[in-house]
Each structure stands twice: as structure tokens, then as C-alpha cells.
Amino acid sequence: MDWTLEVVIVPVSDLDAAIAFYRDQVGFTLDHDTTNEHMHVAQLTPPGSGCSIVVGDLPSQRSMAPGSLHGLQLVVADAVAAREELMGRGVECSEITVFDDRDGGTFFGFADPDGNSWAVQQIRARAEKPLIPHEHRGRFGENLEP
């Protein structure tokens, strides 16, 4: 049986600011922004990822303090290029740190406007062998069914 992690709740104080940050600055795809009488939530997905984040005002989100989520991790094939891309979009990033010269030992970090923190790990092997092959992605990078 497969157990797939597909959504992580990220607690934020300002939904519109969070959407703008993750979509416009970090480059996630806005999958939906749903408002009704019970909720206002948005789901955003990093390009090439099978897991999305959800920001909004569901009870589970209100039970966590904005900015209290730490240690979320993204993986890229080139940390230098990824850091330059984020910084070019106005995201403050830490310096790149090499903990180990082997693939997977290079990191940098950033935080959203509320202080939820992210680590970005370089795994060069992702360039040749992404977890979700490019042929299974749509025009805007979203994941498609095989």
C-alpha cells in the first residue's frame, strides 16, 4: 500500500500575503483559492512536487500559531541557481552551507513573512532523475496523472 504525503498545513496570519509570497516570490503554483461560508483556504504546489501546502483558516490551521512551522524542506538540483532565483524575487535567503561534500549535504534556508522556515537541500541527482518525471507534468509544472 502506498502512503503519499500530499498536503502540509502552513499556519499564516494573512492569507492574501501568504498566497502572494508563495506564488509570486517562491514560485509555487496556486492550485486553488477557495472561499465559502465555512472557510477560506488556498493550496499551492512547488514545481515538480507531489506535495502541496495549504494556507487558510480551517480549524487545524487556527490551532497552530502563525510562523510556528519549522524544518519544512525542499529539494533542488542546484542550490546556487535556486538561491539566486529566490533572491531575484525578493526572498531573503541564508548563505549556502555545505555540511558534507557528498550529494545531499548542501543547504540554504528562507522563511515566509510569518517566520515559517524552510530548508532547501541540493541533490544534484534530481537533475537527471526527478521524483516526478517531466513527462508527467503539465504546461505550468503541475503534476498530471500518468
Rank of each mutant, 00 (worst) to 15 (best):
G109Q: 04
S52M: 13
V80T: 15
D24P: 09
A79S: 12
G88N: 08
N36C: 12
E135Y: 09
G27R: 07
Y22V: 03
S63P: 00
L15Y: 09
H134E: 15
G104Y: 00
L69R: 14
D14K: 07
G48R: 03
V76N: 07
G115Y: 09
D101F: 04
F140S: 15
L69I: 06
G115Q: 11
H134C: 14
A65C: 02
L69D: 00
N116H: 12
Q122R: 14
E92M: 09
D103C: 06
G104I: 05
Q122A: 14
H38Y: 13
E84M: 15
S63L: 04
M39N: 06
S60V: 09
S13I: 02
G138K: 07
Q121D: 01
A125V: 10
R126N: 10
R83Q: 13
A111K: 10
A81F: 04
L15R: 10
R137A: 13
A18N: 09
F110Q: 08
D33A: 11
A82I: 07
D14T: 04
G71R: 08
K129M: 13
R124D: 12
L131A: 11
R83W: 04
G50I: 01
A18W: 01
F140H: 15
S117Q: 02
T106E: 02
S52R: 03
Q121W: 00
Q121P: 02
S49N: 02
L44N: 00
I9H: 10
I19L: 11
G56F: 03
G115S: 07
P113H: 09
P59E: 06
E128I: 08
L15K: 13
R126A: 15
H136N: 13
D31E: 12
H70T: 11
V41W: 05
E84L: 15
P46I: 04
D103T: 05
Q61Y: 02
V75A: 13
F110T: 07
R137K: 15
F108V: 04
H38S: 12
D101Y: 01
A81I: 06
A77I: 09
S63K: 10
V26P: 10
D100A: 00
D24A: 00
G90K: 09
S117T: 15
P47C: 00
M64E: 01
I19A: 06
R126F: 14
P130R: 07
A81T: 11
S68Q: 10
R139M: 10
G141S: 12
E37C: 03
H136S: 10
Q43Y: 02
P130W: 06
V98W: 04
H32F: 15
R23E: 12
T29Q: 13
M64W: 02
V75M: 09
D33N: 11
A65T: 12
Q43H: 03
E142P: 05
S94D: 10
W118A: 02
H38K: 12
G115C: 08
P59Y: 01
H70L: 10
E95C: 07
D16E: 14
A65F: 01
D31P: 01
E84D: 15
V12C: 08
E37G: 03
M87I: 11
C51Y: 01
H40D: 00
L74D: 05
A77T: 08
T34H: 11
G50M: 01
H136F: 15
V55I: 13
D101V: 11
T97G: 03
A18T: 06
V75Y: 06
E37L: 07
E92P: 01
M39P: 00
I9K: 12
A42S: 07
D101T: 13
R23M: 06
G71A: 03
S13A: 12
